[in-house]
Computed example of a mutant assay.
Amino acid sequence: MTTPPLPDMILEPLVRAALMEDLGTCGDLTTRTVIPAGTRQTAQIRAREPGIVSGMQIARLAFHAVDPELELDVRKADGSRIAPGDVLMEIRGEAASILSAERVALNFAGRLAGIATMTAAFVAETSGTRTRITCTRKTTPGLRIVEKQAVLHGGGFNHRFSLSDAILVKDNHIAAAGGVRPVLRAIKAQASHMVRVEIEVDTLDQLAEVLDEGGADVVLLDNMDTPTLREAVAMTEGRLCLEASGNMRLERIAEVAATGVDYISAGALTHSVRTLDLGLDI
Rank of each mutant, 00 (worst) to 15 (best):
T134H: 09
I133E: 03
T139Y: 12
S97M: 01
T129S: 14
A113F: 03
I133F: 13
F108V: 13
G110A: 14
S100R: 07
A124M: 00
A105E: 00
T134I: 15
R137H: 14
A95L: 11
R132N: 10
F108L: 05
S127E: 15
A101K: 06
T131K: 08
A105I: 00
I98H: 03
M118E: 13
I91F: 03
S127M: 05
E90I: 13
G128V: 11
I91P: 03
C135D: 15
E94Y: 02
I98M: 10
L99G: 04
N107S: 03
A96N: 04
V104G: 04
T134E: 11
A113C: 13
S127G: 14
C135W: 00
G93L: 01
N107A: 06
T131M: 10
T134M: 14
T119A: 08
N107V: 02
T129V: 10
A109C: 15
A105T: 06
L106V: 09
V104D: 04
G128T: 11
E125Q: 15
E125N: 12
A124K: 15
F122Y: 15
A124W: 00
E94K: 11
T119P: 06
T119V: 08
G110N: 13
G110S: 12
I98G: 02
I115A: 07
E94T: 05
G114V: 07
F108Q: 08
G114D: 07
I98N: 01
A96G: 13
T131N: 10
I133W: 05
V123A: 02
A121V: 01
A96F: 09
S100T: 10
T136K: 14
S97V: 01
A116T: 06
A105W: 09
G110I: 09
I91N: 05
A96V: 01
T139L: 11
A120G: 12
T129N: 13
I133A: 07
T139G: 14
A101Q: 05
F122T: 12
V123N: 03
G128N: 15
V123P: 09
T131H: 07
T136N: 12
A121K: 14
L106A: 11
A121Q: 11
